[in-house]
Design a protein around this nucleic acid. Structure first.
Lengths: 142, 142
DNA sequence: ACAATAATGATAATTGTTATCATTAAAACA
DNA sequence: TGTTTTAATGATAACAATTATCATTATTGT
């Protein structure tokens, strides 16, 4: 699953930016890679406290941002809800369908939509960077 | 431009919900209809204070929400930025392209994308409700 | 080992949104 | 028209998520 590669990439990224590799950073990436999809800062913070007592919320938050910056992670913002983070390394681009009632949160991908979106952006003098989720009501909803 | 119709619709909506038509509500809708696209609560609040001194921020906020509920307005959330509101009445559905650098904010529409998104949602047992903006870097950017 | 300085962790500040509540004022009715 | 009922208002407090601050700790290069 490429955990070691991900760690190397992050470690290199940190070093090349003139930053430092710390045990907290390592623990954060390790636990993040082992976690489920779409985790919040709080989720990760709680998981980490077991293995890395004394770790601070701000540190977890800061390093999730840094992971995004490095390209290994991805931040998902849904309305005013808490930010969620997902692993990007080794996962190809996808969108999300989110139920506004029960929270069901699934990954979807449609190449035709992707292509059309890119074209639409370019036709309007935009360089596409990212696009957001779709909301709906799930028929499977809780 | 249908300002009168919009006012009637809102007035009826308020009455039918057992709520009351107030001069603040009227002023809020009037000013909202005269405002530019994608206005924030703060923008509208500032515009209103000139014509309706003493009006409260909470009142503006509450009534923008109510306007959304009535179907006349639409809330646009971009990340953790302030919520923006746009007139829905007399405007057909569209998406937005938003520059993550300069904030350029334009409306776009592509029927093919719309159709494909609806199909994708339905194929995954979702009833589509709304979908979000696309982010990019504008080549026209400031 | 030492010096330089980035990272950490605790906490405060910030920001946008929403809730609270005493007061005001619509709407219905006598 | 005056009275009653109760929703709306406006000021402010509460809230929640994120980000900034800063003294202390720890990593990296010498």
């Amino acid at each position: 699953m490429g955990k070691a590669e991900a760690k190397d990439i992050f470690s290199d990224y940190v070093r090349e930016k003139g930053l430092r590799n710390t045990r907290q950073r390592e623990a954060i990436l390790e636990t993040f890679l082992s976690s489920g999809k779409h985790i919040t800062v709080e989720d990760l913070y709680n998981s980490l406290r077991r293995k890395t007592p004394g770790i601070g919320y701000a540190t977890v938050h800061r390093n999730l941002k840094l992971l995004c910056e490095s390209g290994l992670a991805n931040e998902i913002k849904v309305g005013t809800d808490k930010a969620r983070f997902e692993i990007k390394y080794g996962h190809e681009h996808h969108d999300h369908l989110i139920c506004i009632r029960c929270g069901r949160f699934i990954e979807v991908k449609d190449e035709r939509i992707e292509r059309l979106q890119d074209k639409l952006a370019e036709a309007n003098d935009f360089v596409p960077v990212r696009h957001n989720k779709c909301f709906g009501r799930s028929r499977k909803g809780a």
